[in-house]
């Protein structure tokens, strides 16, 4: 029985490889049969070689660390302010009435649209890049913190008043723990947004180091392998970050479950 389960699981795993393998073969076939010039479609081997070369170069790692640093700073600023703003609007109905309409109006502007304006104000420096990433991180965490705070069950608040919890104790002991799943969803979304906008920030606002810079440079030099390796690097790093935050969410969730037992 157990054996059968394993084979079925492996089978489903294997079938998920069918399409990528077909694509890879097609890619190799197109590039080796000469249907497209190697300048436009570099062979998989060529891309691997480029990766090997990149790994020996310091620039590659400088690009990665620059991008990671940028995203972390922007994400921290955006998610912290967004969390506080969402908490404020969630806790106070008056604050919601005052701020929510303006917030939802400003939110309508696509993030990319801010780039020209921010660049005019702050120039082609690091500040506008970080600012645009913070804006991207700000919206999801604000919305999710607000929603999380507002969905705290009424009974919890009644219980809290029985215990005489007020203000900070109420927020720390009752509201935040109850809103935590929603807040973590917000953090995940914020990180994803930051990572997505990072590319726009690095491509539109030219900078010395960054994965976006590598991709853009590859385009300007018609160096397709450089572009493709850049795209793969971004995708891979994004994947690792998503996995990490999902793992974190699971750990926090487990902690909650254990806390509930006690």
């Amino acid at each position: 029985m157990k054996n059968m389960l394993i084979t079925r699981k492996t089978k489903s795993r294997l079938s998920s490889f069918i399409f990528p393998i077909v694509l890879l073969l097609l890619w190799q076939f197109i590039s080796s049969a000469g249907y497209a010039s190697s300048a436009v479609v570099p062979s998989p081997k060529k891309v691997l070689n480029t990766f090997q070369i990149l790994f020996t170069q310091q620039t590659f790692f400088l690009n990665i660390t620059a991008s990671l640093e940028r995203v972390m700073i922007g994400f921290l600023i955006g998610s912290l302010t967004g969390f506080l703003f969402g908490l404020l609007m969630g806790l106070s109905r008056t604050a919601e009435i005052i701020f929510a309409p303006s917030f939802h109006t400003v939110r309508q502007v696509p993030m990319i649209g801010w780039i020209p304006l921010i660049v005019m104000w702050f120039g082609m420096t690091e500040l506008p890049r970080i600012l645009i990433i913070s804006i991207a991180a700000f919206y999801p965490i604000t919305l999710n913190t607000f929603a999380g705070v507002r969905s705290v069950p009424r009974e919890y608040l009644e219980l809290a008043s029985v215990y005489g919890y007020k203000r900070f104790k109420l927020i720390r002991r009752i509201i935040l723990p109850a809103a935590l799943p929603s807040i973590i969803t917000g953090l995940t979304l914020s990180l994803g947004m930051s990572w997505a906008i990072l590319m726009a920030a690095e491509i539109f606002i030219q900078t010395e180091f960054g994965i976006g810079t590598q991709i853009q440079m590859g385009r300007q030099r018609f160096n397709m392998p450089l572009v493709v390796t850049g795209i793969l690097t971004v995708g891979l790093l994004g994947f690792v970050m998503t996995m990490m935050i999902e793992k974190l969410a699971r750990i926090v969730d487990r902690g909650r479950a254990i806390g509930n037992e006690n």
Binding site: L198, M199, I211, V227, V228, I231, V234, F239, T242
Partner: peptide, 10 residues
């Protein structure tokens, strides 16, 4: 996983 804007140069 690849941010859309990374596709733009490609």
């Amino acid at each position: 996983q690849v941010p859309e804007f990374a596709w733009m140069p490609l």
